[in-house]
Amino acid sequence: MARDRLTPSEIEQALQGLDGWTLSESGDAISRRFRFADFASAFGFMAECAIYAEKIDHHPEWSNVYRNVDVSLTTHSAKGLTELDVNLARYMNKVQGRH
Score class of each variant (00 low, 15 high):
residue 2 A to K: 10
residue 2 A to Y: 06
residue 3 R to W: 08
residue 4 D to W: 01
residue 5 R to N: 01
residue 6 L to V: 07
residue 6 L to G: 05
residue 6 L to N: 07
residue 6 L to W: 09
residue 7 T to Y: 11
residue 11 I to E: 13
residue 11 I to A: 07
residue 13 Q to M: 03
residue 14 A to Q: 08
residue 15 L to M: 12
residue 15 L to K: 13
residue 15 L to C: 11
residue 16 Q to M: 07
residue 17 G to P: 07
residue 17 G to I: 09
residue 17 G to D: 15
residue 19 D to P: 06
residue 20 G to R: 00
residue 21 W to F: 15
residue 22 T to K: 12
residue 25 E to V: 00
residue 26 S to G: 04
residue 27 G to N: 12
residue 28 D to T: 08
residue 29 A to L: 06
residue 29 A to W: 02
residue 30 I to P: 07
residue 30 I to M: 12
residue 32 R to I: 08
residue 33 R to S: 10
residue 38 D to W: 03
residue 39 F to M: 11
residue 41 S to R: 02
residue 44 G to E: 04
residue 45 F to R: 04
residue 45 F to N: 00
residue 45 F to K: 00
residue 47 A to W: 02
residue 47 A to Q: 01
residue 48 E to R: 03
residue 49 C to V: 03
residue 50 A to H: 00
residue 50 A to Y: 00
residue 51 I to Y: 01
residue 54 E to A: 06
residue 56 I to L: 14
residue 56 I to Q: 13
residue 56 I to F: 12
residue 57 D to Q: 15
residue 57 D to W: 12
residue 58 H to M: 09
residue 58 H to P: 05
residue 58 H to W: 10
residue 59 H to R: 05
residue 61 E to S: 14
residue 61 E to I: 11
residue 64 N to R: 08
residue 64 N to F: 13
residue 64 N to C: 09
residue 64 N to Q: 03
residue 66 Y to R: 08
residue 67 R to G: 06
residue 70 D to S: 12
residue 70 D to A: 05
residue 70 D to W: 08
residue 72 S to A: 14
residue 74 T to V: 04
residue 77 S to Y: 09
residue 79 K to Y: 04
residue 79 K to R: 11
residue 80 G to F: 04
residue 81 L to M: 11
residue 81 L to Y: 06
residue 82 T to M: 02
residue 82 T to A: 05
residue 83 E to D: 12
residue 83 E to T: 09
residue 84 L to E: 15
residue 84 L to W: 09
residue 86 V to M: 10
residue 86 V to H: 09
residue 87 N to A: 15
residue 88 L to W: 10
residue 88 L to D: 14
residue 89 A to C: 14
residue 90 R to E: 13
residue 92 M to G: 05
residue 92 M to E: 09
residue 93 N to C: 13
residue 94 K to N: 14
residue 94 K to F: 13
residue 95 V to G: 07
residue 95 V to C: 09
residue 95 V to K: 11
residue 98 R to E: 15
residue 99 H to F: 15
residue 99 H to D: 11
